[in-house]
Amino acid sequence: MNINFTLNGKGMELDVDPMALALDVIRGLSLTGTKEGCGVGVCGACTIMVNGSPVSSCICLVGTLVDKDVWTIEGLAEKMPELIDSFVEHEGMQCGICTPGQIVAAASIDSVGASSPEEVKKYMAGNLCRCTGYQTILSAVEDHVAVN
């Protein structure tokens, strides 16, 4: 089936199985910044942005992306360099496997309008990190929220 959507700002027309997972389709396009962790919607390593909201690409059937505006870490890195800088400056990472998901989640935070530290925590609670203890990630996201 032909599926049209915008990916990182560019129109896309793909001939794919609509029942394929967005994660696999995106990674199949060599956009490997989107990671597979838990595969069940819990960890957030596979987070992509769909119409401004965070989505688990590991449980997202690609057919549901028809006509949507989809962003991955690769596109957001170019579109939101300050957010990347914020994670780099705060060292919001160690092994880095969760990092693209954390950043895509942070980029989508306006979708829920989280602004207080408690709201930021509640919102970011869906993105697990096993390495950092979260403090540097929180600082990076809070900076981003404060600037926006």
Partner: peptide, 13 residues
Amino acid sequence: AVAKATGAAKYTA
């Protein structure tokens, strides 16, 4: 940091 934050870092998978 930059490679990891931009998704450019390549892991085994």
